[in-house]
Design a binder for these strands. Structure first.
Lengths: 338, 338
DNA sequence: CTGAAAGCGCTAACAT
DNA sequence: ATGTTAGCGCTTTCAG
């Protein structure tokens, strides 16, 4: 592979002149420039990114850290978020370094210290991750996404409006006459789940409906015993007429269980999901659910990070909450006495 | 941030001695080493990866190129494949550069020429992609995955055994007495689909069953008019008693359509999917399907690339076909006369 | 408009 | 066992 020096020699000029041509600096004679361009073409020269990085002191890359990649429930949007991030970075000529390690052997805060990246986007990062401290100490620019600590205004964060999604769901059901709305929001240790519960309580209050604790069932998204929960709920004296589920797949599962138990969806019971995964439109009845825009989340987070790196964000950390959307399909309907 | 030189000065030794300590070279006196380590700790020194890369001539990174990221049907395993790749690269201290651009503005072959990576893994790369030529010319080590050209033994390739998966499906159905097996393999322009058709023909032949062209329906995985196709097929004089679908979501869709038309699955008709996505176990009836191991695909491709980069693979390009597995659930059963 | 020299932070030869 | 010197390929002063 040719180097700047070789190009300079072949063209009979100094390295600096070649450098000027590559970097589109104006003060070069037109014919000199032309000649140099030809030599570059001929030698198939390409600037060496590593050398540039060394001189500039910038890595020219951003890390996307996601220790939970591979855990299905956290990664339904991983693709689309990544694509959003990639588009923005690409437009800014930044490389995207994907960092999925869980191990403590090479913690992600090293990425910045070792000049491998200029900033980080942290996805699904546990609130109390031990490496987070080192990251803060290193002063690395970083933005969190798919994570939102309650009342944590000390970090830059982008996430979907989990609470708002549930509020929309409850409003939708209330408008259909439902009053006894069960919720299976997911495991209690997730912040997103706690935010949704906040939305649930708030929305019920707005409609003057009581919060009935027996209708709130925390369980793992995928490993929980959904059937037992559904059976329990339907044996209550005052049965629920609608189910809010933490993820679409759980909602699909609930619909099947209800059918097994002899209930019709949505005639007897309404069911709502969260996330709007692809399959939700193909099941029968098609699932009413809350859609998050993963692509937009990625774009927003990456844009924020770039602003942060460029120093144009000197104020206090920002927390951005992205709107979600109710996708109304066929799994919800007018309340009927069961 | 501290540099080698600063550490050397602070410790009262030469840079080379510090360098020796960092690189765990043996010929350093124990007490000198100890002292230097303390200074490193104190100054919070970290080696600058860019400078090392410049000296060594290696980028210390591998690109994963996936221009199709975001297109659902091609990316059901994207997460798990990525995780497999990431694990292997991490163990070899290589960074993972994710490259999702489609644009021709900065083609992926530049990644190698500009020393941003030492090798590439290409996912879902169209057979006739225009940039592929430049890549070949650049002599960059590269491995393809999620792509398999028929009879192309000029590249390094890792992919699932699409043909074998369909053979297993047909064997399973034949054992249940099915003879009229419809197939909706997906769009004809995909190599994976053509390989599946090859498996279909081969398996039918083995069982002495005729290939009936009217039972073969190519259509897009997600945008095709599945309902019309199913209706058409069920109006044939000699109806199919089983459906092989190109992806699980199509199979789920087909099951719903059949139910709408008054058929029972699997009592009247059997349905099989391909891929085993998470939801397939939650639908009712749970879907019988073919499982690919995405993680293993990633591990295999990354390992092959690393071997290739290290020069230990001097022979002819290798094509690795990964085994798939039949996951038998409840959507397939004994043939019954409809 | 163009060039010479210095240096980014590190490693690799060769001393000592 | 430790130090000196010379680069890796590029950009950036500062002179012509």
């Amino acid at each position: 592979v040719a180097t700047l020096k070789q190009v300079a020699e072949a063209a009979g000029v100094s390295v600096k002149t070649v450098s000027r041509v590559i970097n589109h600096e104006p003060e070069v004679a037109a014919n000199t420039r032309q000649h140099i361009l030809e030599v570059i073409e001929e030698l198939n020269y390409r600037p060496n990114t590593r050398a540039r990085a060394l001189v500039s002191g910038k890595a020219g890359a951003v890390a996307v850290v996601n220790p939970a990649a591979g855990e299905a429930h956290l990664n339904l949007f991983f693709d689309s978020v990544l694509r959003g991030i990639a588009e923005v970075l690409s437009a800014h000529k930044l490389d995207l370094l994907l960092y999925l390690s869980r191990g403590d052997d090479s913690p992600y805060c090293e990425l910045f210290l070792q000049k491998r990246v200029d900033g980080l986007i942290l996805m699904n990062m546990p609130f109390d991750d031990p490496n987070l401290l080192g990251l803060t100490e290193s002063n690395a620019p970083c933005v969190h996404t798919c994570y939102l600590a309650e009342n944590d205004n000390t970090r830059y964060v982008v996430d979907a409006d989990h609470a708002g999604g549930i509020v929309m769901s409850v409003n939708h059901l209330a408008a259909l006459g439902h009053r006894d709305i069960a919720i299976l929001p997911g495991p209690d240790n997730l912040i997103a789940v706690r935010l949704r519960m906040e939305g649930y309580r708030r929305a019920l209050a707005q409609h003057g409906l009581p919060v009935r604790d027996e209708l709130i069932r925390h369980l793992e998204f995928y490993s929980g015993d959904v059937r037992q929960i559904v059976v329990d709920l339907m044996q209550l004296e005052q049965q629920p007429t609608a189910f809010l589920c933490g993820v679409d797949l759980m909602a699909i599962n609930v619909m099947n269980i209800l059918r097994d138990l002899g209930y019709r969806v949505p005639d007897d019971i309404s069911v709502l999901g969260f996330n709007d995964v692809v399959v939700s439109q193909y099941v029968s009845p098609a699932l009413t659910t809350i859609r998050q825009d993963g692509h937009r989340k990625g774009v927003t987070a990456a844009t924020m990070l770039i602003d942060l790196m460029s120093g144009s964000l000197d104020g206090a950390p920002q927390q951005v909450t992205l709107d979600v959307e109710l996708i109304q399909r066929s799994s919800t309907g007018q309340r009927n006495k069961v």
